[in-house]
Design a protein around this nucleic acid. Sequence first.
DNA 1: TCCAAACTTGAGCCGACACTAAAGTAGGCT
DNA 2: AGCCTACTTTAGTGTCGGCTCAAGTTTGGA
Lengths: 123, 123
Amino acid sequence: MDPVQVIAEPRRREILRLIWDAERQAGDIADHFEVTFGAISQHLGVLRRAGLVLVRRDGTRRYYRANRPALAPFEAMLEQMWAGQLDRLAELAELAEAGDRTSAAARTEPAKALGRTALEDLP
Amino acid sequence: MDPVQVIAEPRRREILRLIWDAERQAGDIADHFEVTFGAISQHLGVLRRAGLVLVRRDGTRRYYRANRPALAPFEAMLEQMWAGQLDRLAELAELAEAGDRTSAAARTEPAKALGRTALEDLP
DNA sequence: TCCAAACTTGAGCCGACACTAAAGTAGGCT
DNA sequence: AGCCTACTTTAGTGTCGGCTCAAGTTTGGA
């Protein structure tokens, strides 16, 4: 499966966050969610097949952790998301879309409205 | 819509690549694909509402370009994908999954097998 | 050997979403 | 005004993927 599609799933991103700098056993991970153990196990399977997590077996338990090197290209993205920055961008974009005709400047000089600066100084 | 989900769609990523460092009109973009103009227009709408592209109107034409600042967190990822690196990682991961029991080392020291180095020296 | 714990896997269901086809909108031209 | 071009939007359809529930697998211990 396409690595990006794998990471696009919110639950899987949350899993990655849980095992980002500490390994956890599957059951432990599942406890953090309100879905079935089976569902989480399936997510872990997807992450595993994509090479984004690593497993260590100890008896019947399986300890998962994020495969940081493999995730390197996504690291910037993940950290921004976990910092809650990107959601705000989406909100901004929808506002800009809504007040479409009212602000001609947003169309001719929009980099200023939606660019890097927008992430810092928000209402 | 979640920015990551927006980018996860392969066609939309291809669109982003087309308008990465040059603006293009919608019809021009649509010509690069084998789907309907309507379909591409919908993709552009999604990208627009997510704030990932910018539009400039000129008469009946609409010129799209990538909103580079907004895409900054994804830039590393996109470039890796466009360089075709990430697909190979996925292949590798599946191999590792398949030859599961044959290589105990891959489980105990897998960062070396699937990490940064794996992207360079491949069979 | 039998059982329980910790996971994985399979079948089936349901909602989300990308596509087509067709209708709608808006600017420029004669 | 009327039409054409360039695009967007809507309605309807098929597919894909995430979920539940249930069955299967593997390991450790009584």
